[in-house]
C-alpha cells in the first residue's frame, strides 16, 4: 500500500493520506481508460458503468494486498479483465448481446452514414469490436492501451508466447475480414 502511494505521489503534488485518497488518484489516472476497456468487452455503456463501479470497489478493497511485483496499471487491468470476463460469462450478457445485434442491424442501412464505415480505420475499429473476446482483448491491450507484451500477458494471466500467437491470429482474422469487405 505504501509502495503504491509513494509511486503515485511522484505524479501528484500531495502524498495520499488514506486509502480513500489513493482511490481518488487511481480514478483520476485510470477511470477513463478502464471504463473504455470495459466497453470493449460489454459493448454496452450501462453495463460498463456498473462494471467500472465494481472494479474500483474491488481495487479499494484490495489495495492492502497489492504487491510490488506487478505494476499498478497491470494490477488494475487484471482486476478489470476478470470482472469483464465474469460478466460476459453471465446470462445477462448473452441477453444483452442479442439486443445489441437487433439495434445495430436497424441502423446499418442508413444512406449517408454508410460513408462512416468506408474509411479503413473506422472499419477496422468496428471489426475489432466484432472479434471473439480472446482476440479482441489482446489487440486492445497491446495496441490501444499501451501495455507491453509482458504487461498485457500479466494482465491477462497468460504467458507471452500465447499472447504473441493470439495477436498473430487476431491480426490474420482482421486482415481476412477487411479483405472480404474490400477494405484492403
Amino acid at each position: 500500500m505504501d509502495v503504491i502511494m509513494a509511486k503515485s505521489a511522484e505524479k501528484y503534488d500531495g502524498f495520499p493520506q488514506s486509502k480513500s485518497d489513493m482511490l481518488h488518484l487511481l480514478m483520476d489516472e485510470y477511470g477513463e481508460e478502464i471504463k473504455r476497456l470495459v466497453f470493449t468487452y460489454t459493448k454496452n455503456w450501462a453495463q460498463s458503468e456498473d462494471i467500472a463501479q465494481e472494479i474500483f470497489l474491488s481495487v479499494y478493497k484490495n489495495l492492502d494486498s497489492f504487491r510490488e511485483q506487478s505494476n499498478i496499471k497491470t494490477w488494475i487491468y487484471r482486476i478489470a479483465i476478470n470482472k469483464c470476463k465474469d460478466y460476459v460469462r453471465s446470462w445477462h450478457y448473452k441477453r444483452t448481446v442479442i439486443t445489441d445485434i437487433i439495434f445495430s442491424n436497424e441502423t446499418e442501412d442508413s444512406p449517408e452514414t454508410v460513408y462512416l464505415y468506408s474509411e479503413q480505420k473506422q472499419m477496422v475499429s468496428k471489426l475489432i469490436l466484432q472479434l471473439p473476446i480472446k482476440y479482441r482483448e489482446v489487440i486492445v491491450l497491446y495496441y490501444f492501451k499501451d501495455l507491453t507484451m509482458e504487461e498485457a500477458s500479466a494482465a491477462l494471466e497468460m504467458n507471452v508466447n500465447t499472447l504473441k500467437s493470439r495477436l498473430r491470429r487476431a491480426k490474420n482474422i482482421l486482415e481476412s475480414k477487411l479483405r472480404s469487405k474490400g477494405g484492403l
Binding site: R36, F39, V124, S125
Partner: peptide, 10 residues
Amino acid sequence: MKQEFENSIS
C-alpha cells in the same frame, strides 16, 4: 489507429 479506435468507442 489508437485515437480512431478510442473515438469509435466514444
